[in-house]
Amino acid sequence: MDIKAMDLPPRKVAYLRYTGPFGPAIGSFWRDVFNPWRAAHGLMARTTYGVAQDDPSTTPPERCRYDACVEVDEGYAAEAPAATAVLPGGRYAVAAYRGDASGIGAAWGAFYSQALPASGYETIPGPCFERYPADYSEDAATGVFQCELCIPIK
């Protein structure tokens, strides 16, 4: 896994929260809840983020929180059930991911346990997230997509 250090600016996002076990249900949440919400609010063709708020290795599955986010303009005011937040800017270790939803958990595991320690980068507290480009697409036949895995570093 190749890792690069990148300086990312802060981004205002609107998000919808999923609570429950990580895994295939998050893909269903994006497809059935978040993407229709984005379309209804004119927020398609913008960079999106997936932010795990909890570590599934230490949090009971039914209490794990995950925010599906989309970049919004500074003055954007979200209406419930959406909320807004700012993803902090700073230096991040970034690894490219290409695969389907069933492999992203293992990719995160390899990033944290193998690639990041081997890189020499030191993590700092802050949100880790998946970043999806504004022109994101998923292969309808295979479910394969691309995103970047981002971890805050010194």
Rank of each mutant, 00 (worst) to 15 (best):
K4D: 07
M6I: 15
M6Y: 01
D7V: 15
P9F: 13
P9W: 12
P10L: 14
P10W: 12
V13N: 02
L16I: 06
G20Y: 03
F22C: 06
F22V: 09
G23K: 02
G23T: 01
P24V: 07
P24T: 07
A25E: 11
I26H: 04
W30A: 12
R31N: 11
V33C: 14
V33F: 07
F34I: 03
F34G: 08
N35V: 12
N35A: 14
N35L: 15
P36C: 08
P36A: 08
P36D: 07
A39N: 09
A39L: 15
H41E: 10
G42D: 11
L43S: 05
M44F: 02
A45H: 13
G50Q: 01
V51S: 09
A52V: 02
Q53G: 12
Q53S: 02
D55A: 10
D55S: 06
D55E: 07
P56H: 08
S57V: 09
S57P: 00
S57Y: 09
S57E: 10
T59R: 11
P61A: 12
R63I: 03
R63G: 00
R63C: 09
C64N: 13
C64T: 07
R65E: 13
R65D: 07
R65S: 09
Y66N: 01
D67F: 08
C69S: 05
C69E: 06
V70H: 03
G75K: 02
A77W: 00
A77P: 00
E79M: 14
A80Y: 07
A80S: 14
P81G: 04
A83T: 05
A83D: 10
T84G: 08
T84K: 03
A85D: 14
A85M: 15
P88F: 14
P88V: 15
G89I: 13
G90H: 09
R91A: 14
Y92Q: 05
Y92M: 09
A93D: 04
V94S: 06
V94A: 12
A95M: 15
A96M: 10
Y97D: 04
G99R: 03
G99L: 05
D100G: 13
A101D: 09
A101G: 07
S102P: 00
G103R: 07
G105F: 11
G105T: 01
A106M: 13
A106H: 08
A107C: 12
W108G: 03
W108K: 06
G109N: 08
A110T: 08
F111N: 03
Y112D: 05
Q114D: 11
Q114L: 15
A115S: 12
A115Q: 02
L116S: 04
L116N: 01
P117F: 05
P117G: 06
P117M: 04
A118G: 02
A118F: 06
S119R: 04
S119F: 08
S119V: 06
G120I: 03
Y121W: 12
Y121R: 09
T123G: 10
I124G: 01
I124M: 15
P125V: 05
P125H: 02
